[in-house]
């Protein structure tokens, strides 16, 4: 379980002014829940995710994972960024093995696990390719495999499909849902696309500037979800109105 308790984060800009990025945020994410954070650009989504990852420290408040305070990044909470962050000097296989090497897992177990997750994202045949030989969608699949291979409790994703074309994006969304169903992971997924959030999430967190939660919406739709069905469109309109109000 992830608990974000009264967390605030302020940054200092170049002029020394204090900019609130996240203010008094409270959020609890249950085990194996899929939560999407949606909001306009600049509303504090990335900051929230980075705080949970332990890449930034909250100015105020606490973040707990299974009751223990978050203190710096660990493989327990892996991140998939929007930017392609595969290491260009490593093959696909060695990219996925990165976290396992650091953990000094032995070669045999490592290779078995790499194989498992590469196959899970449908790239079993690309293990010896280099990242720059792959398309953007394939690179993000590898990034997902790399994060999953570390077997994190919580998978953090910051607009991971934001740079992809809409068709590829849809395919990857479906794959992610499939993986989430099989692997049973807690996922905190940031996006600025309302329909992406509603397609994926059990619960949508609507955020507005400056880093406040506007509303929590349970998405009570069976998966796979049809973007054209009446209730999907209702959720879509509801979220859009909430974002437009502010």
């Amino acid at each position: 379980m992830l608990e974000i308790i009264n967390v605030s984060k302020t940054f200092q800009n170049a002029n020394g002014e204090r900019i609130p990025a996240v203010s008094s945020l409270d959020l609890t994410v249950a085990r194996n829940e899929f939560v999407c954070v949606v909001g306009m650009s600049g509303c504090g989504k990335t900051t929230t995710l980075r705080l949970v990852a332990g890449l930034d420290k909250p100015t105020e408040g606490r973040i707990l994972v299974d009751g223990r305070k978050v203190n710096g990044p660990t493989p327990e909470r892996c991140v998939v960024f929007q930017k392609y962050t595969l290491f260009p000097w490593r093959t696909v296989r060695d990219n996925v093995a990165f976290g396992l090497e650091i953990r000094r897992m032995n070669r045999q177990d490592r290779m078995a696990r790499v194989r498992k997750y590469l196959e899970l994202v449908g790239l079993g045949d690309y293990d010896m390719s280099y990242p720059f030989e792959l398309s953007g969608g394939m690179q993000q699949r590898v990034a997902v495999a790399r994060a999953l291979a570390a077997e994190p409790k919580i998978l953090l994703m910051d607009e991971p499909f934001g740079a992809l074309d809409s068709r590829t994006r849809e395919i990857l969304q479906n794959e992610l849902i499939g993986i989430w169903c099989n692997e049973r992971k807690t996922i905190l997924f940031v996006t600025h696309s309302i329909s992406e959030a509603i397609t994926l999430a059990d619960r949508v967190v609507v955020m507005t500037r400056p880093g406040r939660i506007r509303r929590l919406i349970d998405i009570d739709l069976p998966r796979p979800r049809d973007k054209n069905c009446e209730r999907f469109r209702k959720y879509n309109a509801q979220v859009r109105d909430l974002l437009n109000e502010s």
Partner: peptide
């Protein structure tokens, strides 16, 4: 080196 590389590595356990 882009920060994302270093941060990805850190979340994967690199110290």
């Amino acid at each position: 080196i882009p920060d994302e590389y270093i941060e990805s590595a850190r979340t994967l356990g690199a110290r």
